[in-house]
Nucleic acid binder design. Structure first.
Lengths: 188, 188
DNA sequence: ATAAACATTAACCGATCGGTACATGTTCTT
DNA sequence: AAGAACATGTACCGATCGGTTAATGTTTAT
């Protein structure tokens, strides 16, 4: 199996797990939906959990790349970019295939503290925090880490809410709250 | 089976699903952990999904009752109570058995729009919104529904974060953000 | 052309899934 | 005390779970 074929498999597995859930989607169904036989899958991934970890690694890279690039395109100062995060979120929520965040889902299904899948999800959220932190540092906030954590609270809350109610206004609510927090933040 | 026995079953099922996940915990394991045989369970619940719905109904009542009473004990004005919500959350996060919110987990595992379990989770979050809304109305906020939605964003975000990182400071971060939003909210 | 190397498929493994049939208590009525 | 009504546990149902074995292409090197 070529490297690109493998990437394609992980990508298709991501779609299947994202739409159907990790426990709910079995390996047989996965083989059918990805067009790759179970044997071929197990040639490259020792266990289902390993495949899930590969899916999460890919999604981490995808999501953070997308967010950073989209935010860069929408605003040019760190302060404006922190607000623009929620415009980007709004675009994501509006996609018909939006079904919450795969890491929140993964941590819901694999919740034991030491589980690698849980840890991988936590790591993704930490990397996201570091991105927010870069921006709050860039705008010269007095307590950049604190503000970054607050921004992330709104980020995670918006995703959860967008999955449970009409997502149309969720991003705007979060954006308004973020703008308040950012503009009233003390600058060093 | 007496009514109290039934309640006890639902309560024990709640613990098992909460700790282990809905798909991951099967009916055999459930029977073992609750001490009630499968046959007896199926005497009172047509399907596993029906049992899950009963679990969610109980948890909805429990959580909202707990939150309202705890907040009432911590503060006496609507404005202070909105902030106190996050002190209550902090107490919850500090419990060793805390493992996120069962409704967020349920909506992660049953994510199809029309699924009754998903709908029940959404309904719980809507009832929670109505509680926040009562408080924002009580404090005379200019846009009470908008502020209530922002408070709920912090509420959901805090739960997700508390599940993925050290939960010690999460509630305080959310409380600080909520206080900012509440105190800078226009009053009609 | 041929054989080694690799990829794929189908069939199968024991375990567990949600759910049920049935035989055995146990309790209440008379 | 006898029998109806109900509750319970055991053993089982076909289907599916994650994962493997072994036989069958398909490619590549010589």
């Amino acid at each position: 199996m070529s490297a690109s074929k493998r990437d394609e498999l992980v990508q298709n597995a991501m779609r299947a797990f994202y739409q159907g859930g990790f426990h709910a989607v079995g390996m047989d169904r996965l083989a059918k939906e990805t067009g790759v036989s179970k044997t071929a899958i197990y040639k490259h991934f020792r266990t289902k959990d390993d495949l899930i970890l590969a899916v999460l690694r890919l999604r981490d890279e995808q999501y953070r790349n997308w967010l950073v690039r989209r935010v860069e395109a929408l605003a040019s100062t760190p302060k404006d970019r922190l607000v623009a995060v929620f415009d980007a979120l709004g675009e994501w929520f509006a996609e018909p295939s939006f079904k919450s965040c795969i890491f929140i889902k993964a941590s819901s299904e694999f919740q034991e503290r030491g589980n690698p899948i849980h840890a991988s999800s936590a790591e993704h959220k930490h990397l996201l925090f570091k991105y927010f932190s870069r921006l709050t540092n860039g705008m010269g906030a007095d307590d950049p880490e604190g503000l970054a954590r607050q921004i992330q609270l709104l980020h995670e809350g918006a995703i959860v809410q967008a999955h449970l109610r009409d997502p149309r206004d969720v991003a705007q609510d979060a954006k308004a709250a973020a703008a308040r927090l950012i503009h009233s933040a003390k600058v060093a």
